[in-house]
Design a protein around this nucleic acid. Sequence first.
DNA 1: AGGCTCGTCATTTTT
DNA 2: TGACGAGCCT
Length: 715
Amino acid sequence: MQLDYLKDLNEKQSEAVQLQNESALILAGAGSGKTKVLTSRISWLIHNQIVSPNGILAVTFTNKAANEMLSRISTQLGMNPRGMWVGTFHGLCNRFLRLHYKETNLPQTFQILDSSDQLSAIKRLCKILQIDPDKITPKEIQYHINGSKENGMRAKDVKTYDAHTQKINEIYLEYEKQCQREGVADFGELLLRSYELLISNETLRTHYQNRFNYILVDEFQDTSELQYRWLKLLTGKNNIIFAVGDDDQSIYAFRGANVGNMQSLQHDFNIEKVIKLEQNYRSKNNILSAANEIIKNNEKRLGKDLWTASGDGDLIKVFRALSDSDEAQYILDEIKMWHRKGKLYQNIAILYRSNAQSRILEHSMVSNNIPYRVYGGLRFFERAEVKHALAYLRLIANKQDDNAFLRIVNFPKRGIGNRSLETLQDISKINNTSLWEAAKSSYKTPTSEKGISYFIDLIRKIEDEIQGLTLAESMDVVINFSGLKNHYMNDKDGQDRVSNLEELVSAATTFSENFNGEDKNLELTEFLNYTSLESGELQAKANQDALQLMTIHSAKGLEFDIVFITGLEEGLCPHEQCLIEADGLEEERRLMYVAVTRARENLYLTYAQSRLMYGQTQYNLSSRFLDEIPENLIKKINVIENPQIKQFNQPKQVTQSFSHSEYPYKIGSQVLHKKFGNGVVLSYEGSSNDLRVQVQFANAGTKWLALEFAKLEKL
DNA sequence: AGGCTCGTCATTTTT
DNA sequence: TGACGAGCCT
């Protein structure tokens, strides 16, 4: 019997879906139907009773991808398969640790620290350890801790070769103790602890190895060292791993992703044949060819070439703008044109390398009343007012949670100053107890609605009040009794925050509806986990038709009819920071590849000759990635219309209409620039009031500078 | 306790 | 340029 979900698969996809008894690496190019293959395979395994849902473990990187996978599988199978483990690495590890909290020595209600919670925990620790934040920054410590955990190392495993790192590592050791005492786990801890438990507990390891016979991994190129080791451990000798990924789309090395895992997988699991999905169902041929040509310049590749059965489509438009505002204006005009033709805004995206670039684009959209949505930025559960409200529940769930305690003890204000907090911290340090215990030990019946003792009464009162209430009702009690709602209602621009608090109550309602379980305490714990693990993209409503603005990184996995890639300038994209890093340029090129392959129909590449950065005008050369696209795929805009501007990307010539005596600095002479340092004058271009000079700097590369602005000194 | 000013520092980010 | 945090002043 031919199944519906197998019908639409091409030959390669079909081969991948129906692989028998062997581990596999699927090299899935952009737009090649990666998710389809992954979900179809799971449906195929279940439908043919090769394995029961219980035996399947599927891992993704984002909650969004996990949800997408689940919903597609239920559509394909016509039912909701129960018993599978599908989720993010962190979500699955959290689930595992909850089930085995005793074996791993955590309280059943342990709380999860997100990055900002982690940072405040570190800052708090530094204060106690009297670390000078000028010598060792909390960020630096956080980086060390997370990096070490990513590599599977506890403080005791880290080898240090200098006093500075030594000191940081000592703080890491103290941090581990602090987290253990407080019963909290950061993101890295979820993974590391799960891994360690599987290693040390043979019974558990054997149990899970016997259970999960089929392990599937999405976005495999983004796995870290520790994640790969965890997968390997679960797979053991007898299970089958099915990894889908694209080395050309590996853009997260900076946060621990290790593309090398793809080679390791082939080696460790004796994979002889890598299946390549190279047919692209997304983009027109011109766009795809450009992408192929760009990525060809990378040397470290497994190698693949995308092709499409769809037509060439329009040429890629390359626009050279005079300035960043000129660039924004051009994009605006084009978008208006498309919209007049009936294109929805939501099918158009503007991509940029760094967030700072969104400002001027946003400005241009606002002043022209074009609806837009900027991705990235604060998520719902990361908002201060939401975190405050949740901290009340966290403290109630776990009195050891000093982070939560400190967040709310004086918020809203209850006249508790630094002095009283320092006293409290001293007591807790001496007795080695939580702040809550310390506060209790010095409790005196409060005489007003102020002070630490009043705070204790307040928490107890809320605790009493929520007995027997639903989660949403409890949330409501917290918001009102704590004084949070009142506080924001009296704040003249607190309206949004009040509605976010109300939104939080609805979030709790929705959570309860989907929660199947009896235990009320467990429901609260799981809700709190949910708020830490799920950043709250779902809470973002905005279904209005809007233009999409985002960084290239956050565009990964998405697709749009029309895509503008902006700021294609040397120093910005590729970013100058990356040029110093090992393999930095190749990663930047993959970034460019990801950006280009987001487009279905039309692709615009824009760059500006001058750009305002950090309050200074910078003159950048066009990105080398533009030069990597063959001329026949490109239509250059703004070259003919403006005769003053020379041929695109041609080496700039000295303008002949000026005699050499008019140049303030002789060609070949040495000059000094305030920021770029020493340089040699190479050439000039432009007319007398817009005369520009090309200077090759010893340490800053070659740049075009406008004489009017550039403060050069003769040497 | 809260507001203000000054100084510093500017990729990319999910969990 | 502008956002954010530390520290100082009221």
